[in-house]
Design a protein around this nucleic acid. Sequence first.
DNA 1: ATGACTTGTAATACAAGA
Length: 265
Amino acid sequence: MSLRIATWNINSVRQRIGHLKDFTESHHPDVLSLQETKVQNSEFPENEIKSMGYETVLFHGQKSYNGVAILCKKQVKSSNQLIWCEKDDCRHLSVTLDNGVQVHNFYVPSGGSIPDPEQNDKFAHKLQFLKEMTEWISNPEIKNDKIILVGDLNVAPLENDVWNHKKIQKSVGHTPLECDLMAKMKEAGDLTDVGRHFVPADQPLYSWWGYRYKPAFAKNYGWRLDHILTTDILKAALQHFEVVKDTRGWEKPSDHVPNIVDLNL
DNA sequence: ATGACTTGTAATACAAGA
């Protein structure tokens, strides 16, 4: 039984509803996790998405910022939202599928611009969030669960996850401190980095190209901020991985592009 | 020179992204 899971920071689900339709029609994910939906639940375009063939449409959003959603072609067993850093700021949503697979969708705080937790509360929040994720995935009770952790983790952990490692090391998202926390999280959960399972670490792999510097995409000045990680029990089921870079070239694109994994269960 | 943009909110800037 093949299962296609995708994750996409869509940067406003309402602005990108047409892109969402185009992407789902061309790539037909069974489960699609979205981040930065930027809409409160009462305004979420639920019916429009259901008409795209998603029977289960779950969302956890707030006004203006953040917000996550999970779209599933079929019904699911259950869903859940967890609180991180004692704030319910709509950064996590999970589903348990009928086959027992759990998809956990995260939007990790970006962390502001100054990479110093003393000077920058947003960076402190990001570090704390990553630490809490590590504690959560370390729980021995979930060690043998079939977990797919996806989302915009806002960290590009490896040298070839950014277009210029030396230059970017001092920037939030690629500091040694953040890269180390990501490595610890992977180790703690015995997680497989699906992107790097399929694309060797000596090759560049990106999922985000900034808006501010216009030629960033053309010059391939990218970062890999979006991730798919699985617990070890799912490693043998991994079949295919893909970054849908095309979407960054669409009209009025999100600055992030979708990541896709296929599993054979 | 990752700046120079984009979004949502609310009222012509501002906060936030990363």
